[in-house]
Structure formats: structure tokens, C-alpha cells
Design a protein around this nucleic acid. Structure first.
Length: 475
RNA sequence: CGGGGACUAGCGCAGCCUGGUAGCGCGACUGUUUUGGGAACAGUAGGUCGUGGGUUCAAAUCCCGCGUCCCCGACCA
């Protein structure tokens, strides 16, 4: 690679952080905007978000949810109603205090999340059990004034979806919480090919105002965890704070049970960090906005190259592939190969005069870097195979690598060593006994990413437990 | 939010220490030859040196404030 041309990215192994910044910028996913922590999501990056949206939205609707849209601005008094909630978000909230030159009577928060606004509305809408369940999702932007920002992974403003549901019974709400975690898990693993660990959050790590938080996380190449989505069981905490009541079948007035769940553009960050290499992005075929790029060689002198390329393109489009024909005249083929590799396109077809003589073309796969000669009549079959094989290969190799970064330990003393060697580690844990969690964080910077069931073991305080905790540092 | 670094043409950088007419490479544009892993030659265009103050006859260069970014730590989808 010719780095002096400045089209390359830095080494992934040497400095993952720098590699990430280079890659998202040079692959054209984002650009920095003038306000600290804010970014432009450029077309190639936004196309990834659109793919994620499309896939999730379909699954939300299949599970009975509807989309709606709630306002951006939340009166300060609403935000204050749930004590833990306001405390959790207070440091990150941006406020609107004036309109034109007039100071507002009440400050308005730019939503850091929408529980307050949505619960206020739900209180109006819910009267009896026949009004339940309410299963609403919204696609929106939110704002959190973060201290350290990185494109996609943590930005001041970000795009996400937030589901907010209301149920007559606790069982139904708990079931919903886990159902949506399952939807996230399937989408991320199957569609983004990003392997996950998942489970419940500890008390200290859960969402401000929730009873339970369930999470999906991936362990990145540097051994650090990235939280990629959360699903919360809110119990009646918000119903009480926002005065949401319903009259049940037994004629008594009750608070309903709620959930909320969300994933954000951070998913794109996780996708990039999981699959890239020193040439740039690698996109799994299912999410790739461009699955196949066709690069013609010496087409200006050989009109037939153009003709055949376009025919192949049409055939592949007809078969349902997302195909781009790169007929830019001013660039040589070698440049185009590198350019599309940087952008992560999974399959590349090369066609030149030599191929025409043999009725063949070259087909290259981005994940392994290999290429082979294929008869033109077999192209769509080959692409069909590559589409599923690349998807499978990316997930399996990412999964193996992730698993090699997760250790099974017995004692809390093992945590430091694991963290120092860039690993995450499971430790038998008694969640009731919390002081040690803070101490471990102090000493090792590792936090509990999630809790999972395990065989009966001895916990940190010598008690018997059937729970283990995954410790790692977090991005 | 602390500690360190950066900001000069679209991109990457030199110039700053020691103040005195803004430079290099890549890219862009025009033309010709090229095209199977980042093309070659010739010509052309492109800059209020991040921003606001100060010192000076004179500031990209020295001093102070502010902004944004990067790296490393403390807090978080």
C-alpha cells in the first residue's frame, strides 16, 4: 500500500483507536462538523444506518409495534419527575433557555431520551385495560453532552430508535423486555455479523430509572466491551412518577408496567471495529449498501467491455443484488480496487479484454482478499455463494476471535491480569454484595458488563451463587 | 473534565526556534499517451496561515484568550 498517497489507513493492530478514526473518515462514512462532538453522517455512512433501520423496523412491526414521533423539547419539570432518571441524565442535558431574545418561563431540555415526554402522553391516553398494551417505537435524534466523543461511538447528537411499551401485567412487560433483547441480538448477529455477549446489567450499571436493564455487548479486538443495545424493564417507576393509571378487569385502579429499549448509530461503530482490516472497512453482504462493484478494464478502447459489464450488472440487479458499475474514466483499475476495498464492498468483479476472449471475468472477495476466474454464465451463482459465504465467514471468524478474548475465572484477583492482557473475564458473583464492584473498578478500570447464569459456584464473598459477571473495560 | 500534541491550498506536510514578498508532495483542471493492484509527461488554477486580541515599523513566526480535532487518563447509548 502506498501511504504517501494518503489514501490508506493506519495499522489496526498497532493502534485500533487511530485505525478507527482514519477508517470512518477515509471510507467516507462521516465528517466532523464545527460543533464539538457533532458529526455529519455522509451518504455511505447513512446508507448503513438506513439498512439497519429497514431491518429493525421490519422486525419491530412483525412483533406488533407501531412508529410514532414525539417532540424534541421536554419541559424541565417533566424531566424532574422521576428522581433517579433526572439524576442519571442531569450532567449531559442541553437546555433551551431563550426564544429569540425572550427568556423562556421554563427551561426546555433537548431530549437525552424520551421517557419523560412519552410517559406524560401515555398518562393522557391510558384509562382502562382495553387501552393496553401500548407498543410504540420512535426513530429520532437525541442529545447528550458527552465529555469525550468519537464518531458513531459517542457523539453529542446521535440517531437511534426508542421503543416505549405499556402493559397491564408485570409478566407481560418482562416478556416484552426479553423479546426485544432477542430482536436486537438476532439483528446484530445475523445482519451485522457482530458476535455478542448478552445478559442483565448490575445495579450500578443499569439505566437510570429502570428496574432491570438487559444488554447486548461485543468484546472488541482490544479486549474492551462495546454496549450495542439495551432493553429495560421499568416496572411501575415511571407510571408512578407520571401518574399513569388504568382500571383493570377487577375494577381496581392500577399502575401499568412499562419497558423501553433502544439501539443507536453506535451499531455502525461496532460494525466497523469488528470487521475492518488494514485496507479499510469490510462490510457483511447483508448490510452492505453496495454488495458488488464491477470494475471495467480498458473499456474506452474496448466498447465490448462496457457492453458486457452492463449486461452482467443488469442480470445481477435482476437477481436482487445491489450493484455499482464503476465506469469513472479518469481512474485506473488499481486505484478503483483499493478505493472499493477501503469502502468495504464485499464482492468485486473485474472485466477486461482478456476476459472477453474466454467469456470469463475475475471475481474477488473482500473478506479473504482472494480472486478467481469465473465463467460469465456462472456469475450470479458465484455471487449468490459468496454473499452467504462471506456473511458466514465474517461472523464466524469474528465470533472465534471474540471468544478468545473472554476468559473464565474463579476469583476476583484474576481480573487485573485479564484486563492487563486485553481480555474480558467471567467471575462467579453475588450481585447483592456490591462494594467490591466499585473497588474493582477503582483498581482495574473494569466494570461489570453483564450478568449470566452459571453452575453453582463460590462468589467473591465466599457465598454460593449461580450467577457470573463479565468484567471488562468499556469504550 | 485533567495531561500532552495539532491546526499553513481539497488532502498530507515544511516554514516558526532566530519576525522581513507563503513553499513542497499528492489531488483538481486542460491536453496527449495510458489502463489486469494506488499511471506518465506538459501546462493551468488554487492561501484573509483555525479564531479574537496584544507586542512590533513589520507577525504564519513572539505573548494571551477562545474554538475544533487527535492521543492518554477520570465519566457515559
Amino acid at each position: 500500500m502506498n501511504k504517501s498517497k494518503n489514501l490508506g489507513v493506519s495499522s489496526r493492530d498497532e493502534n485500533l483507536s487511530q485505525w478507527y478514526t482514519d477508517t470512518v473518515l477515509k471510507a467516507g462514512l462521516v465528517d466532523y462538523a464545527p460543533v464539538r462532538g457533532s458529526m455529519v453522517i455522509k451518504p455511505h455512512g447513512y446508507a448503513l444506518w438506513e439498512q439497519i433501520q429497514k431491518e429493525l423496523d421490519r422486525r419491530f412491526k412483525e412483533t406488533g409495534h407501531q412508529n410514532a414521533y414525539f417532540p424534541l423539547l421536554i419541559p424541565e419539570s417533566f424531566l424532574k419527575k422521576e428522581a433517579e432518571h433526572v439524576e442519571g441524565f442531569a450532567p449531559e442535558v442541553a437546555w433551551v433557555e431563550t426564544a429569540g431574545s425572550e427568556p423562556l418561563e421554563e427551561r426546555l431540555a433537548i431530549r437525552p431520551t424520551s421517557e419523560a415526554m412519552i410517559c406524560h402522553m401515555y398518562a393522557k391516553w391510558i384509562n382502562g385495560y382495553r387501552d393496553l398494551p401500548i407498543l410504540i417505537n420512535q426513530w429520532a435524534n437525541v442529545m447528550r453532552w458527552e465529555k469525550t466523543t468519537r464518531p458513531f461511538l459517542r457523539t453529542t447528537e446521535f440517531l437511534w430508535q426508542e421503543g416505549h411499551t405499556v402493559h397491564a401485567t408485570k409478566e407481560e412487560a418482562l416478556k416484552e423486555t426479553l423479546l426485544m433483547l432477542e430482536v436486537y441480538k438476532d439483528t446484530v448477529q445475523d445482519f451485522l455479523a457482530v458476535p455478542l455477549v448478552y445478559g442483565q446489567k448490575s445495579e450500578s450499571e443499569k439505566f437510570a430509572g429502570a428496574v432491570e436493564t438487559h444488554t447486548i455487548e461485543t468484546i472488541l479486538p482490544d479486549g474492551q466491551a462495546l454496549q450495542m443495545g439495551t432493553s429495560h424493564y421499568l416496572g411501575t417507576n415511571f407510571a408512578k412518577a407520571f401518574d399513569i393509571w388504568f382500571q383493570d378487569k377487577d375494577k381496581t385502579r392500577k399502575h401499568p408496567f412499562q419497558t423501553s429499549w433502544g439501539v443507536s448509530t453506535r451499531l455502525i461503530g461496532g460494525l466497523v471495529l469488528t470487521h475492518g482490516d488494514d485496507k479499510g472497512l469490510i462490510l457483511p453482504p447483508k448490510i452492505a449498501p453496495i454488495q458488488i462493484v464491477i470494475v471495467p478494464i480498458a473499456a474506452e478502447k474496448n466498447p465490448k467491455v462496457n457492453e458486457v459489464s452492463l449486461k452482467i450488472k443488469d442480470d445481477l440487479v435482476e437477481k436482487g443484488f445491489k450493484v455499482t458499475y464503476d465506469n469513472r474514466e479518469n481512474l485506473r483499475p488499481g486505484f478503483k480496487f483499493n478505493d472499493w476495498e477501503l469502502k468495504g464492498v464485499p464482492i468485486r468483479i473485474e472485466i477486461g479484454p482478456r476476459d472477453l476472449e474466454e467469456n470469463s471475468c475475475m471475481v474477488a472477495r473482500r473478506d479473504k482478499g482472494s480472486k478467481e476466474k469465473i465463467k460469465i454464465e456462472n456469475i450470479s451463482e458465484t455471487c449468490e455463494f459468496l454473499k452467504s459465504d462471506i456473511q458466514k465467514n465474517l461472523f464466524e471468524s469474528a465470533k472465534n476471535k471474540m471468544e478468545s478474548r473472554i476468559l473464565e475465572g474463579k476469583k476476583t484477583e484474576e481480573i487485573k491480569k485479564a484486563i492487563d492482557s486485553k481480555k474480558a473475564i467471567w467471575i462467579p458473583w453475588n450481585p447483592e454484595n456490591k462494594d467490591l464492584e466499585a473497588e474493582i473498578k477503582e483498581k482495574t478500570k473494569a466494570t461489570i458488563r453483564c450478568l449470566n447464569p452459571t453452575d453453582e459456584s463460590v462468589a467473591q464473598d465466599g457465598s454460593k451463587t449461580k450467577i457470573k459477571a463479565l468484567f471488562s473495560r468499556a469504550w
